[in-house]
Nucleic acid binder design. Structure first.
Lengths: 200, 200
DNA sequence: AAGAAAAACGGATGATCCATCCGTTTCATT
DNA sequence: AATGAAACGGATGGATCATCCGTTTTTCTT
């Protein structure tokens, strides 16, 4: 039987070989460190730091962007869980607002998230799937808030991702040293935008 | 007499030699084209396109950032003029708002401006000077609006540059094709933020 | 457990990109 | 026209990128 047909259409790829899984994990770990430090990712350098051949890195992650996405997976899953909890919330506006607080905060504390959330297209299929889930949940939150008459007219779903990423961008640009303070700045900017977004 | 002492403290450098001025202009023209196209700037490539030696490019602009700043000069000067006109405006809020509209629009129509306005430090002394002028004029606009009681408490001068650049970032992220439409999106996002900023 | 097939590995290496250095040319000055 | 200073160009050494292929490791089969 052709392996291609076996996995065709599946999101889950065949399980990795033991050594491959180990190396992949090592690479991601190094990637996480580099992303956190704000260093621009160089795949050759990642290989050296992970004590792994260059080709191994390139096989797993053809581009730095792909590695960043792999690093972002945990954060994306956490956001999806938060969105799932939010859709359970009774009050549409509270659900909407709390989730936005969460997503801004996440972008500021996890440097891998911003590039993934603001990238037009994903490099890894796994990321695309997570982004789809997140997008679908967020759409619900947005439409519920809109249906409850809480959103000013003229605001569309397509505006939300840019606005959220713009807020994170602004907060990152603010000359705040300490992460705590930066989170507060992000929260502040979000409040400004939410004020502007809300029906008055 | 030591040339250093002659020019010490002056912003204006000794006039360029004829050939140097010509080459500098050529290089900037090519740079303008590349920036407009959104291409990442490679100094060797710029040299080739400008029919000039690599060293000539590096002598004038040690980094891509420096070339971008040179390209941005016209836009910066236009913004300074707009700010000067705005401080003449009678109504503090109108002056403030109109200038923000202008600066957002400028960032969206001139791709060289964003990196310069959001960069923490300038690569060329000329840019630093222009940014200082702009900053000083904007401070006046901001403080007048604040003194008129039009700004919500909690908003500081240090928030304004991040917020403005964030708005431009958001608009650039929006999936709008046509520049006209993108300008409208930027204007829209600015309205949202201004709503949130204003005392109610 | 042994052997074979498949999967993954590593790092040498050619290709590409970067930026400096220095011999030559052009310009301004007298 | 001569001289010194300023600017020029591009060859080139150094760094980074990413592929290719001979070797090793794992998994599967019998």
């Amino acid at each position: 039987m052709d392996p291609l047909s076996v996995y065709a259409g599946k999101v889950t790829a065949p399980p990795l070989r033991k050594d491959a899984a180990r190396n992949r994990q090592r690479i991601i770990e190094i990637g996480r460190k580099l992303v956190a430090d704000g260093t621009t990712i160089q795949l050759n350098e990642v290989a050296r730091a992970a004590s792994v051949g260059v080709a191994t890195v390139y096989r797993h992650f053809p581009t730095p962007q792909a590695l960043i996405e792999a690093v972002a997976v945990d954060g994306l899953e956490a956001l999806i869980q938060a969105a799932e909890r939010a859709v359970e919330q009774d009050d549409p506006w509270t659900a909407f607002r709390d989730f936005l607080v969460r997503i801004v905060d996440a972008q500021l504390s996890d440097a891998a998230l911003s590039p993934v959330l603001s990238a037009p297209t994903a490099a890894l299929p796994g990321t695309a799937h997570l982004l789809d889930q997140l997008s679908s949940l967020f759409t619900q939150l947005f439409e519920r808030a809109g249906a409850a008459g809480q959103l000013a007219p003229g605001i569309t779903l397509a505006d939300m991702t840019p606005l959220i990423c713009g807020i994170a961008f602004s907060a990152r640009m603010h000359p705040a040293i300490d992460p705590q303070e930066r989170a507060a700045v992000g929260r502040h900017y979000l409040d400004v935008v939410l004020n502007g977004l809300r029906t008055r």
